[in-house]
Design a protein around this nucleic acid. Structure first.
Length: 379
DNA sequence: AAATTCGTCAACCGCTCTTCA
DNA sequence: GTGAAGAGCGGTTGACGAATT
């Protein structure tokens, strides 16, 4: 090391030497974390505070776990990434002993590749399955392959009308509020949440256009729903009609209830045992008080647009082979009790050809659900 | 055995956010 | 209200070892 000038020491860059590590460790153990630029000076390091901070946080901190990621950690990262996207620090906050940098590297070097590989396998398996004789009723292919342009053509007039009528450009959520809500959602293993219209710029048709559409065969499990232009939306085509429609209703009802500040949540209930995914959405006037309306259960593939609004009650149809008796009972019970929604904690069971999944909504009252049948075929 | 490619990961860079005077 | 400084974040780079040619 040759940087010894007192007046204006040239700051070192690059890899840390063991001596530098020792200095930083000793200082931190004695003094704890303070102003990082002071740490650098007082520990006698020719490094900038930023470099010291990074070295401590990512490498020297005593509570770091290090070593290979366990399968459980890997699953957790994939799940959290589906909720939080590339917000590595937030993901790291939920994996004790792991750093954002470590997770980011792990994601970029390992998980990304694995997911890509898995998707390729899924495509192959889906292709071979499609070519073989199917005993299971396949959903209509037109709904599975509808191009985005056709979707937009179909929905945009309604969406524009909604935007003009209901979107409130005054509603802005602070970053802090947003983070708080994201935290609460990410802490629940069975939910993800994203954002709806906060400004005129983030309106529905805009959101729809910004979707990163994927063919159904390439859709990942536990996909993320987002209506924000800031976040990618790797949904498959088949989930869009139900989600868009549910949002349509949500807005209408929302407006009728004079509830202007809308927050959309989406619970991702993916069940490893069956490969079924159920979606639910709800909204609220703030993060605490969900205000569900309607009780809509629809199928995203087989009946993408067939269900209808019958005043207060929404009719729905599930495709042949699905047992929705649980849903019926709940809905009927709710209707008999004069309720127009199902409450948090309600449970439904989806069944098809022996595969089943229990969907329990733990966090939010249920507004809309769409059972993503693609997962049935691809798992 | 040497050259090249690939994968991993520590560290840097540039930006945004927060805090404080 | 404003600007400066520090903190934090995510994208990117580059060093280095392993694998491959």
């Amino acid at each position: 090391m040759s940087c010894t000038t007192e007046a204006k020491p040239k700051l070192r860059k690059g890899l840390w030497s063991p001596e530098e590590d020792d200095k930083l460790i000793n200082y931190m153990m004695k003094n704890g974390q303070g102003c990082w630029s002071d740490v650098a000076k007082q520990a006698g390091l020719q490094r900038c505070g930023k470099s010291c901070r990074l070295r401590w946080i990512n490498y020297l901190r005593p509570d770091l776990k290090r070593g290979a990621f366990s399968p459980h950690e890997e699953q957790l990262i994939i799940h959290l990434h589906s909720i939080l996207g590339n917000r590595w620090s937030q993901i790291a906050a939920r994996l004790p002993g792991r750093t954002d940098n470590e997770i980011k590297n792990f994601w970029n070097s390992c998980i990304k590749k694995k997911l890509k590989h898995n998707n390729n396998s899924i495509i192959k398996s889906a292709t071979s399955t499609a070519n073989s004789t199917m005993s299971m009723p396949m959903p209509a292919m037109s709904a599975r392959t509808q191009p985005l342009d056709a979707m937009l053509a179909r929905y945009q007039p309604s969406l524009r009308a909604i935007e003009n009528q209901f979107c409130n450009p005054e509603v802005q959520r602070s970053k802090r509020e947003q983070n708080q809500f994201e935290d609460s959602a990410a802490n629940s293993m069975n939910s993800c949440q994203l954002w709806n219209t906060y400004s005129a710029q983030e309106n529905f048709s805009h959101s729809l256009r910004s979707m990163n559409l994927q063919e159904p065969s390439q859709a990942r499990l536990c996909d993320q729903i987002s209506w924000s232009s800031n976040t990618q939306l790797p949904l498959n085509y088949t989930t869009i009609p139900a989600l868009v429609d549910s949002e349509f209703i949500s807005l209408k009802e929302n407006h009728n209830n004079n509830n202007q500040n809308e927050l959309m949540t989406a619970c991702d209930n993916y069940h490893e045992s069956s490969g079924l995914t159920a979606w639910s959405t709800s909204y609220s006037d703030n993060t605490e008080n969900c205000n569900p309306v309607g009780n809509i259960l629809c199928n995203a593939i087989a009946q993408p647009m067939e269900w209808a609004i019958n005043e207060e009650k929404i009719s729905y149809e599930l495709p042949q082979g699905y047992d929705c008796s649980g849903i019926n009972e709940k809905e009927e019970a709710g209707a008999a009790a004069g309720l127009n929604s199902l409450g948090g904690g309600d449970e439904f069971e989806f069944e098809c050809e022996g595969a089943s999944a229990v969907w329990q909504d733990n966090m939010y009252d249920i507004h809309t659900a769409a059972c993503d049948l693609d997962q049935m075929y691809f798992t």
